[in-house]
Write a protein that binds this DNA or RNA. Structure first.
Lengths: 196, 196
DNA sequence: CGCGACGTTGATTTGCCTCAACGATTGTGG
DNA sequence: CCACAATCGTTGAGGCAAATCAACGTCGCG
């Protein structure tokens, strides 16, 4: 298995000694998924978080009303899981599903915690990553509070130019907080405007 | 200054040795604020994060359209800041303002980072707190995506029964993502329904 | 007291949803 | 390799939740 991507990713935050890299490698497992396959479903306890080595994963909630709300897309070099379930080791509420054939690297909860205790470098890495994730999701909250559907869509395209063509439209709509039909109309409107 | 609240809070996650407590106390400063006073304004770099010892603070953004969107309320025993500005030490975009006369304890960025390097316990504490904050804000995203204005309001009352009466209604509305007028109508509607 | 900030209420408007019908594309089994 | 179904995206008509606008009531504070 090729772990270089993950290790490089970690080393963007901290530097690792050889023995730390080895200790990390010892706890990892990789998993291959076919398109539409589930990594996790509601009610299960999320035992690992996942680093996407190849492919594209999303997690989403099905609300009481029956419709999907996607929380996150993750392509190569991103982490994903049912994070609430993962950190508290309680039953989760999200579906975590491959949108393409994918390969993920699993980081099992218990072993990661142990690793952090033994090597503060990892403690530090996960602190920095969590902080960044938190700051990021605060930005998203502000975007959801303040912006119109069209603005949110344009923001998304700016931020992740390469994701849009890899995910189905209804999934993107459910990430952006609008109906699939309305997203279709927005795209249509934008396309017209760019001619005139 | 009474630091017991902060220390107890930390010890809910990890246990501290005497020397760690001392090292922590060395880097803290407290600050007193009068109602409406700003702890931070857009454009400034957020040099500290703040633990609320007494009072109530909120942070909010003023969007291009000119209206406020509040990101967070923090009363006793909560942390608040312009978190994106804090972790990246770049110019911020939020107002951080006291809604009541308050006392906060400042945790200066550089010194906290140093403390984390020296004592992995703190590294660990801030990791756990950030993870929790991240999971929490993901819940809020899902709530914003899926729920109606009325549901969001009721959820808030459930979750923070004691906050509502301490914050102005327009601030709560801007946290919940609705207009102040509409929140007023919701409350009216709920009051009526509880009679019949 | 009188002013300004805050909350209320009603009338009107609008952004977005819902529903339904219809293409286009994909993939799957015969 | 085709036929058929399923899935996905598009388009339009109509409806609703929530915003906007404006006028008025109220309270706290200088």
């Amino acid at each position: 298995m090729n772990l270089q991507g993950l290790i490089d990713n970690i080393q963007r935050y901290i530097s690792l000694e050889e023995r730390e890299i080895c200790a990390l490698e010892d706890i990892l497992e990789s998993r291959t998924l076919r398109k539409k396959e589930f990594l996790l479903q509601p009610g299960q306890v999320c035992r690992s978080q996942f680093y996407v080595h190849k492919g594209l994963i999303r997690n989403y909630l099905i609300g009481e009303d029956g419709d999907e709300h996607t929380l996150q897309f993750a392509c190569e070099d991103w982490f994903i899981s049912d994070f609430n379930s993962y950190i508290n080791q309680v039953a989760g509420s999200l579906f975590v599903q491959a949108l393409e054939d994918s390969v993920v690297i699993c980081l099992p909860y218990q072993k990661v915690e142990e690793l952090c205790r033994v090597y503060p470098s990892f403690e530090r890495f996960f602190r920095l990553v969590s902080q960044k994730a938190f700051a990021f999701s605060q930005k998203r909250i502000l975007s959801n509070l303040g912006k119109s559907a069209e603005e949110r869509y344009r923001e998304f395209k700016d931020l992740y130019p390469n994701i849009e063509q890899r995910v189905p439209q209804y999934a993107l709509a459910s990430y952006l907080g609008m109906s699939s039909e309305f997203l279709s109309k927005i795209k249509n409107r934008l396309a017209r405007n760019s001619f005139s």
